[in-house]
Amino acid sequence: MHTENPRVVFKERPGTGIPVPGEHVVFERSHSIDLDGVPLNGGFLTKTLMLSPEPFMRERMRDLCIPSYSTHAVLGDPLVSFGLVVVLRSEKEGINPGDHLYGLTPWEVYTVQPYIHGRSKYDPAEAPDYTYDVDALELQIVPDPKGAFPWSRYFSVLGAPGLTAFCGFEGCADAKAGETIYVSSGASAVGSVVIQLAKAKGLKVIASAGADSKVEYMRALGADVAFNYKTTPIVEVLREHGPLDIYWDNVGGKTVEAAIEYSRVHARLIMCGCISEYAIGPEERYGIKNTGLIFKKRLRVEGFLAPELAPRLAPRFYAEMPVLVAEGKITAKEHITEGLENGPAAMAAVLKEGGNEAAGKPVILVATE
């Protein structure tokens, strides 16, 4: 007996701009699956419970001739991002029906894992040396929180955003009590965790976002100075509340220029993301005009990818963060969109300037248990 298996498919490369739901990214109901009889070939069958729209998904939709830090998404296949799934059947040792797993998974309700159809043709010999094989990341079993916190926390503070924040802050910031950090996109899933990690270390935190509701959220997280960059110029805030010892960059462009201008000598600039550039062409990118200050102030500018720092720092993350979340010492918020059919619109919203109006990590609720 076949069961409907809806999915969200990458239909057309968008060039520049935000992917248009129904054109570049399409919800389909045409596929079905035999849940009892589909061959597992030594793998396991999962049901998708939640999915995470992420800015990096847009980066993977770029033209095939454009190199980047990630491998390309594959036309005609479901989108792939971080998700929470539950195991229905299994032929794989160590994975049993009822297990919950978190990691990269396709945007469809049912999947035979490990998923290989959407893997890009990645040849390390041909790719730039800064390209990371995104598809190499695998699903990992996660423990049932048993009411200590909702499953959706695995998409924010306990998932890829939290791990990214932890690895970047602990691996690159060299933070000391009394220093000042500026966190751009501070209400995002990554930025919100950075704010809390910085406050726990005794730092003064300046944070920005693109909506007044997000400003209130950042204040609730402990930010000493929180502001809406759309209504208050960044340079005015940094001039008054800086100089900076650390800058955490999630956006790129003019924000980096302002941070350089108001950094102390020997400040650290941690480059985590660049959402201002993901949906535009090279000719539209903002050219930073004060790079000469990098050597004059002896600034340390460091980019990172969490998977490269994770072998050293993930054991600490998984040992420390769930306890802090369960105790309420580290908090998070998720913005839930119900229904896989609303996935294309939810992904597009993540890429708009300032992101979603609602504070918290966007999560798509696909199904319940």
Rank of each mutant, 00 (worst) to 15 (best):
V256L: 14
H241D: 07
V190S: 04
R312L: 09
P97D: 10
P307T: 05
E12L: 13
Y229L: 03
R239D: 15
I141A: 11
G98R: 12
A148D: 15
E277S: 11
I195D: 00
A346R: 02
G328S: 12
R312D: 08
Y217G: 12
I330S: 00
A279P: 00
S90M: 10
W107C: 02
Q113K: 12
K352T: 14
P322Q: 04
P315S: 06
L197Q: 02
R153H: 14
V325N: 06
T368G: 02
S184M: 03
K297W: 13
V134E: 13
A226N: 02
G202W: 03
R153A: 15
E283I: 11
A173C: 15
P143V: 14
P150R: 04
L305P: 05
T368Y: 07
G168V: 09
G292W: 15
A348R: 05
Y69A: 06
Y154F: 15
Y278C: 09
F295C: 08
G168A: 09
A177P: 13
A223V: 12
P362S: 04
R153Y: 15
G252A: 10
W248L: 11
P344K: 04
H24C: 08
G273P: 08
M57W: 01
R7E: 12
A310E: 08
T3M: 14
W248A: 06
G355C: 09
I330L: 14
A226K: 10
Q196N: 03
T331F: 01
D133M: 05
Q196P: 02
L51E: 03
L309A: 07
A279R: 00
L35Y: 06
L203M: 13
T131R: 13
V205M: 02
T3F: 11
K352C: 05
V194E: 01
Y130L: 07
V256A: 09
P150D: 13
G186P: 02
A310K: 05
V86H: 00
V237Q: 12
D224L: 09
Y102P: 01
Y229S: 06
S263H: 08
P322I: 08
L340S: 10
I336F: 10
E108P: 04
L244N: 04
I33K: 08
S185V: 02
P128R: 09
K361V: 03
R62L: 10
T48C: 12
D63M: 11
N290G: 07
A220H: 06
S184D: 08
V26A: 03
R219Y: 05
P315M: 09
L351N: 02
V9C: 09
A267R: 07
A345N: 07
R316C: 00
L238K: 02
V215Q: 01
T131Q: 15
R298Y: 09
R58A: 15
K204T: 14
I234N: 06
P19F: 04
I195R: 06
E170W: 11
V157G: 00
Y278T: 07
R264K: 14
L75K: 15
I141G: 01
T291D: 00
E59C: 09
A160T: 12
S120E: 01
